[in-house]
């Protein structure tokens, strides 16, 4: 399984933590598509605590954290 943790507004209409079968996704981008999260609505993508990109591969046991962009002042 892959554990996906969503932060702030990405939780709206979704769960805070989502478990995905590792066979169903091969990259972070696949996870975004599966959860119907547009790429431009994600600022930080962490895989096991390290900042990665949408094309980064994921595997069983990974923890993926997704944060929306924050830019106001």
């Amino acid at each position: 399984m892959i554990e996906v943790r969503l932060f702030a507004t990405l939780r709206q209409g979704r769960e805070k933590i989502i478990m995905l079968e590792s066979e169903t996704v091969s990259t972070v981008g696949d996870i975004l598509r599966k959860l119907d999260i547009p790429t431009e609505e994600v600022s930080i993508l962490l895989v096991n605590g390290f900042h990665k990109k949408t094309e980064t591969p994921v595997q069983d046991g990974d923890i993926v954290a997704l944060f929306p962009p924050v830019g106001g002042g």
Partner: peptide, 14 residues
Amino acid sequence: ALYPPDVTIRDKSV
């Protein structure tokens, strides 16, 4: 590193 080039901010509230 923080902001990908095409990132969009939806929540304008503060």
